[in-house]
Design a protein around this nucleic acid. Sequence first.
DNA 1: CAGTGAGCGAGCTTCCGCTTGACTT
Length: 669
Amino acid sequence: MDLIIVESPTKAKTISRFLGKDYQILSTMGHIRDLPKSSLGVDLEKNFKPQYVVVPGKEKTVNQLKKEAKSAQTVYLATDPDREGEAIAHHAEVICSSPKPNPPAGGQSPKFSRIVFHEITELAVKKALVNPGVVNKDLVNAQVARRVLDRLVGYRLSPVLWKKIRRGLSAGRVQSVVVRLIVEREREINRFKREEYWRILVAFTKGTDIFIAELISKGGKKLAVRSRIPLFADSYTVTKTAIKNERQALDIIFNLNEPFRVEDVDTKELSRHSPPPFTTSTLQQSAYRKLGFSSKQTMRLAQRLYERGWITYHRTDSTNLASMAVEKMRQWINSQYGRSYLPPEPNFYKTKARVAQEAHEAIRPTDFNRREVEKIGNRENRLYRLIWSQAVSSQMTSAKFENTKVEISGEDYVFLVRGSRLIFDGYLKAWGGNRRDEERLPLLKKGDVVVPVTFSPIRNFTSPPPRYSEASLIAILEKEGIGRPSTYAPIISTIQNRRYAEKSEGQFEPTVLGMVTNDFLVDHFKEIVSLPFTANMEEGLDKIANGGAEWKKLIGQFYQPFQKQLEKVEEQVGRVKIPVQKTGKKCPKCKKGELVIRTGRFGKFLSCSRFPECRYTAPYIEKLLGVKCPQCGGDVVIKRTRKGKQFYGCSNYPQCKWASWRKPKEISK
DNA sequence: CAGTGAGCGAGCTTCCGCTTGACTT
């Protein structure tokens, strides 16, 4: 019997349904061999020779692969069709073909065939089986280069941080850039100067209708002032008006004179195209924005949907849909919604990611007739419905809006009001007729006289660029090609576990430790924490994969200067002090020092500035919530676990051990 | 669900990317 090796057990199950009992199908559950965890595992004397070991905990899987391969005639290596998948195929081949102390006399060792398919359908799998190839050594070498580079960066840089800042810290090609994004953004926010400006809104009536228009120009000059601020990985547009204070605003209002006439009515039809079906990144972003799920939570739910066979694979960077799925979806749309919702040709989407490997399809339901899963309203179902709508609507026609711009003038002042009306719902139908974007206007035509009823000067302030949420962070990572679908969620945990950043009300703020560590890396290893570093690496890896470069050369080109810089920093740079935050309060123990806020391994805490002479410590209370502890009546405070997750605890800890994940209800006395 | 910082110096920390499952509120 022949053996087929895939990565995911769910995939194995699906394929065995297609192929019946003729094949045995096993899964590797990801990588089976890797560099050892507790040493560098890269021989610097021997041209970066990597030392591979069986991944701890994978011994059973490996033994089973070996055993079944022995009795197989052909071993089909059907791991994912991307760089990591090629490496897994290679490792499986190595494991299954060794050790061969004495090649069985007369017996045959198995033949290895590399097969690939981009969609898991019976046809695709059977086609792959009759088109066997061999493992692509160049692609494997590209993966080795990627792995070795990440190991060198991570395992040589981290110890520098232990020595120069604090034990246990970490640095890496991906995580250090993520921390930098958050730190840079915080500084951009701090640099930002809020500016006051005023808007003038006027409520007009026409007949029995009322609508609100905004003053947009005065004496032929537009009031809006736009400025673009370049950001570290982005840019930000600030819009304000030329009205700087209340006096100017009132001045304008007192000078407004009737009559006010409709000067111009401009109506345009606008079509809005559906977004593409989900990739991992866009699923995480949408689930966060629309359902409030964290990326971790989203992945856990998606995993369950995938295991039950309800959705395609959920770790993907592709927006492509299997042609069979598109065909079925088109039939479904045609029969349920009708012809006008079906584009003449299928919609195609270009993938946004810079370095997409497109080993899998986009995320979609496996059966479009399944509109709900399990109990309506539960989390799994809500995520499923999101995936369903995104996939189905991606193959539907555009929605059409009629947008109206009405200008109203009075002397040398011009007011503007915009309206929007949905004239054809198109793909929005798959979202359950979402009409939130409409803004209805009364019927207005040129020359109409409208009567003002109220004048409202509105005070505004320009707002700084927003802090990153999980969603906006993942969007940047995908855009820059940093990290992969399988790592977006873990990265976000890592930077919090290391206490480089904390999430507060859904937004990332750098800690003092995060800023110190980032500044150290930017000062001394600028290239590695730059955005193009990963992009450049990918370029090099592509050359290796195409047979146009040797992996050892690429690593050497990176490592020689890196090594020099490591030595220089070791020698010349002193230990960095982590700054403390002053509180202005006296230490209650020694009465001499000042209480300061320090960041330790378990987050912030209070201690005496005279440490180590005075060893006073106390927990740092972030916020008093005004809620009493249900056990002892003390104050309930927000605390953070070792891993940085928020929980609620009693301020009398450790005397009172009360703790909860959820905020306790107010106790009324 | 939780006690920290410095330095002494045992032994140890650390990367990214591919999988799932064992644990808990």
